[in-house]
Nucleic acid binder design. Structure first.
Lengths: 329, 329
DNA sequence: TATTTTGTGTTAACCGGTTGACATTTAATC
DNA sequence: GATTAAATGTCAACCGGTTAACACAAAATA
């Protein structure tokens, strides 16, 4: 029982009694073909269980129908949903997905970028939290960024972070909070999410309140996050409102606040950010700002595919957010 | 400003003043090479920003260093963590990941299988909930299944579902629950997760209690799940314990129970299943059975890589679970 | 009948690397 | 000085499709 060799186009041609060219024509629907020949070829393909070798085709055609996705990690409801939706949409448009979880490590991200390019991906959708990595400049490749500023050549899809920041802050203020703390990623990051911070500061000042912002890296461990959060309560025991820049952190803050004896929402009101589906099911009580994740994903895919097929550089897109009225405010 | 053509191996050879063969030797570290030549070649590669075309290499070598992952959807903390961990591990072993979210649609799964094979993936890790799909039999390809029985040639990695089911059920019983309902996927599915059901039934009978099992498809909508759960409460208003086969459903059950006036855990005790990281942060109060997701992922990757490199058919692996003592029991 | 359209074959170049075979030069060892 | 090992080059075949060019026959149309 030897290894069954995979059928090649020549085997199909031989079995069908036609030429290699004709088989290729049938597969690619080019030129004149009679029903009879088409059937003969298909029958032969079925009999041999023939699958064309996509790699050979890729090499000749200089396109792979592959799109690379570089995101921090799908082990996070926000990115999980984003990636899942993009994958689905890309598949429906004939693209497969090469996944790269960068874990927010700039070196790893560069590595992915290089390697995905070496794999001849037709395009890239990127949504990590890192600094502008200059390697992207040289990448002569269609790229779309999600929630991340790269350079002027790369269109960005994001939600309305300023509006979201404003809504979150006003929600806290209008429900009576005075000492409102905001947590966010490092300010040095070039991401539209920084606008949440800006909106928070503006809104606080507008209402005559003092903005207090703390920053953390997205990719620190659970334990480090806990330490970070506990420190906030230590430095501001009178806190009565928190605007936390993502839901997972917000959940952890609620937990720690509970341990420290704060009652949510009576003593302390908390607003999160992102509003991924899984989060809303697991923690429906969390008041949060919902990003239109599916629409962001679909928009990014549409823009990328447009770029790939007609070089049309779409404009940046900003999509609206909305409030999820949980019970933590 | 014309399109910058990507550098090819010949361009590098010319610039470095060596032959194409030498460049290839440098890249693949074969044969005798002087430090001087190696440096010349590397310099030329840097100057041209050369990236070897992986597709050409794949075609010749008949290996792609690509692994296909077919899972229901990364928009679920359990699969998100599983995929994230596998991706990380595979990357460290030199493999890239082609992602396919099958959404538990058997047709889509077959399509993915075919297309990923056409892409010449070196191997496949599969973890959907579908029926045994016979296409896998013909797939002359290294495959590992996670939590899913395929056929005898395909090794399965799973956690100890029987033990998990037993632990969950006993936890409920020992905390005083009498009318304990279990929900699970359709019984027709050939998955090791069915052992949870078996363990539940065995344990209930062992303690002289009557097992009541409800089944739902994994992939029905949020609204349908809500209807399904409400119906359980309607048919069994006296329920005081629930063993729900995954955490997301358990969260929804808690929510609905609350709406119906049940107090958890006083009136009703609930145990979930999976214990993904994100879930445990978002809903630390949920009592659940923790599957060793990272270890399952790593084990599957190790087995696959072993299969790819030396054709060694590993044995099925069953990994231990543990209880997460939340506050819903 | 002449012309055009349709259907199929043959051949060879091409995509961009990899590799084996063989030749040649230089450096190291006996 | 002879022998061996090290370093590099040339050349061509190969991986498995795609495609342009050209030839030719059969069917449809003028």
């Amino acid at each position: 029982m030897g290894e069954i060799m995979k059928a090649k186009i020549d085997d199909v041609a031989k079995l069908a009694g036609v030429s290699k060219t004709t088989v290729s024509r049938v597969m690619n629907k080019r030129g004149y073909l009679s029903e009879k020949t088409i059937k003969k070829v298909h029958d032969a393909m079925d009999e041999l269980n023939y699958q064309p070798n996509v790699v050979a085709r890729q090499l000749f055609k200089q396109e792979t129908k592959l799109v690379g996705l570089i995101f921090p990690t799908v082990n996070n409801p926000f990115f999980g949903q984003l990636v899942a939706t993009m994958e689905k949409k890309l598949f429906s448009k004939g693209f497969k997905v090469l996944l790269g979880d960068s874990m927010n490590d700039p070196e790893k991200e560069k590595l992915y970028l290089r390697e995905l390019m070496a794999h001849q991906v037709d395009g890239l959708i990127v949504g990590a939290h890192n600094q502008g990595i200059k390697e992207y400049q040289n990448a002569n490749l269609p790229i779309i960024a999600i929630d991340r500023i790269m350079n002027n050549d790369i269109p960005v899809v994001s939600s309305d972070n300023y509006q979201g920041g404003k809504m979150a802050t006003e929600l806290l203020i209008k429900n009576g909070a005075k000492v409102i703390i905001h947590t966010n990623g490092p300010k040095t990051l070039q991401t539209p999410a920084q606008k949440r911070y800006q909106a928070y500061e503006d809104t606080m000042i507008q209402y005559g309140l003092k903005p207090i912002t703390y920053t953390v890296d997205f990719n620190v461990s659970y334990e480090q996050k806990a330490k970070f959060l506990k420190n906030i309560f230590k430095e501001h025991p009178d806190v009565d409102g928190m605007f936390i820049s993502n839901d997972v952190d917000a959940a952890q803050a609620i937990d720690i606040a509970g341990d420290l004896g704060y009652k949510v929402p009576e003593d302390l009101k908390i607003v999160g950010y992102d509003g991924a589906e899984a989060t809303r099911i697991l923690l429906p009580n969390l008041t949060t700002i919902i990003q239109p994740i599916d629409r962001m994903a679909e928009t990014a895919v549409n823009m990328l595919v447009a770029r790939i097929s007609n070089n049309d550089a779409g404009e940046n897109k900003v999509l609206p957010v909305k409030v999820w009225r949980g019970k933590t405010v």
